[in-house]
């Protein structure tokens, strides 16, 4: 039982990566297909590079604009990651024993503070950026967010550790 569920998790993640890769390829193809129809003498653009060197025909440019507007394949692959991660979370969390639901809340709380990544970027801006008004405002917001998130990270993992340390088996 244990082993089987671990495998499920593994498949989910592997599947996720695979899907993301395939979506990326599909988007690439979508971007290339109309180009192939219009252009005849121009050399075929290299599939591996996302930035084509060749001047683009109108149809491709229009499509690219459309994709940009919708945030392009970037947004779709992020959405795919999001949806698949929800599924991974769903299956993993149903396997959490009800006795550990409190540590589950504490640890999910701690890991949701990974939002600190965004705060780090804001707080760690280049100094010449900080000297502008908006840059300074952003840096301060980032700094405050780093404080809040790190309270959560240190506090959350520590309190989880304290809780888990108390769960003991019957002495035999």
């Amino acid at each position: 039982m244990e082993e089987q569920t671990t495998d499920q998790g593994g498949q989910g993640l592997g599947g996720a990566l695979d899907l993301i890769r395939r979506m990326g390829e599909a988007a690439q193809q979508a971007a290339d297909t109309p180009a192939a129809q219009v252009q005849v003498p121009v050399p075929v653009p290299d599939v591996a590079t996302t930035v084509p060197v060749v001047p683009r025909p109108a149809a491709e440019a229009a499509l690219q604009q459309l994709l940009d507007a919708a945030h392009g394949p970037d947004f779709l692959s992020l959405l795919a990651v999001f949806v698949l991660a929800i599924f991974v979370g769903y299956y993993v969390v149903w396997h959490v024993t009800p006795a550990l639901h409190s540590p589950l809340m504490a640890v999910t709380n701690a890991i949701s503070s990974v939002i600190i990544v965004g705060a780090l970027i804001a707080a760690g801006m280049a100094v010449d950026n900080v000297s502008t008004v908006f840059g300074f405002v952003s840096t301060v917001f980032g700094f405050l967010a780093v404080i809040l998130a790190s309270v959560n990270i240190f506090g959350g993992f520590l309190v989880t550790r304290r809780m888990l340390a108390m769960f003991r088996k019957k002495p035999r």
Binding site: D74, L78, V81, F82, A85, I86, V88, I111, I115, G118
Partner: peptide, 19 residues
Amino acid sequence: GFTLHNPLLIITGALVGSS
């Protein structure tokens, strides 16, 4: 995570959200 195009934030957020 969507705003910053950061898959780590998106994955973690989704895990916590579904939990």
